[in-house]
Design a protein around this nucleic acid. Structure first.
Length: 280
DNA sequence: CGTCTTTGACCTGCGC
DNA sequence: GCGCAGGTCAAAGACG
């Protein structure tokens, strides 16, 4: 996604930001070298204020970094939602072209209301999640914090990958069901369709949006295909959204701070800026 | 032994 | 009534 070549332009990017002993003079360009040490010793107080100024600058840049991380997180969220919409549209398109009988669309619970002899009954709330998985992983397992019992698997017409049917293990007291199927376009993407709402707590919180879990590196709620049958244009679980956003921010911040080239690039930028406008 | 998964059979809703 | 396709059931087997 991001061209990282710019971060590798200079091998000397690994600048030590710690406020510690100064670098040896031969590491510093002649025109930027500090005055002789005798002068330094005479201006101990001035040096202290300089350190304070640098710390303030670092704090300011740290704040800036935080804001940037949030912006990246927002962009990632938007990208995920748009990607979800794209897959939704891509999955609808063949049906509109007539490759799937329109009568089937009626039966598809994600996009219609249940019908009875007495008329239409409101659909149970449906929501969708896209989960990034290892393409070789065929387990169709979505770690969402709830316990599920698989009760069926079926190969559907519009998708070469099998669809798995799950019921909440608290059934029949909990009516929630979910269908899990790999995306026909992208075998590394799992689409989980949830029907109904849980009437109990999650059974294992540590599996929800696990940052360290690479088997489910990105669990992303996405809008339902048929927004006109939902009360909200985007059928996201609003209670989960702030938590998800916070976790994404944390994840991005962790990823960025663990990325040596990124921290090196930031360090270089700080260094250059400090050289341009030395603390008063 | 209890729980869960697998999988073929069966059920259901729909258009013709 | 038939055919189609999605959804569900339930027996058998696996597993801890």
């Amino acid at each position: 996604m991001m061209d990282s070549s710019w971060t590798n332009q200079s091998p000397s990017l690994s600048l030590d930001l710690s406020v510690g002993p100064p670098r040896s003079p031969d590491q510093v360009p002649p025109d930027q070298r500090s005055p002789p040490r005798k002068a330094e010793a005479n201006s101990f107080h001035a040096c202290g204020t300089q350190v304070g100024a640098i710390e303030a600058k670092l704090n300011q840049i740290s704040e800036e970094n935080k804001r940037l991380a949030e912006m990246v997180s927002d962009m990632h969220m938007n990208y995920s939602v748009l990607r979800g919409r794209l897959f939704d549209l891509a999955s609808i398109a063949p049906q509109e072209k007539g490759s799937v009988s329109p009568k089937r669309k009626r039966v598809d619970g994600a996009s219609c209301n249940y019908q009875t002899k007495h008329g239409e009954v409101p659909m149970p709330k449906t929501s969708k999640m896209y989960v990034r998985i290892d393409p070789t992983d065929s387990s169709l397992v979505v770690k969402d914090g709830y316990q599920w019992r698989k009760y069926g698997q079926k190969v559907t017409r519009d998708n070469p990958f099998p669809r798995a049917y799950f019921r909440c293990s608290f059934a029949p007291s909990c009516p929630v069901k979910k269908k899990v199927q790999k995306s026909a376009e992208d075998g590394s993407l799992l689409l989980a369709t949830y029907e109904g709402e849980h009437n109990h707590e999650r059974s294992s919180r540590d599996e929800v949006y696990s940052v360290s879990d690479h088997s489910a590196a990105a669990v992303l709620p996405c809008p339902s295909i048929d927004a006109e049958h939902t009360s909200q244009p985007y059928d996201l679980d609003e209670a989960e959204l702030p938590k998800l956003q916070r976790l994404l921010v944390e994840q991005m911040a962790t990823a960025l701070t663990n990325d040596r080239s990124f921290t090196a690039a930031i360090a270089t930028a700080i260094y250059e800026r400090m050289l341009q406008s030395p603390p008063a």
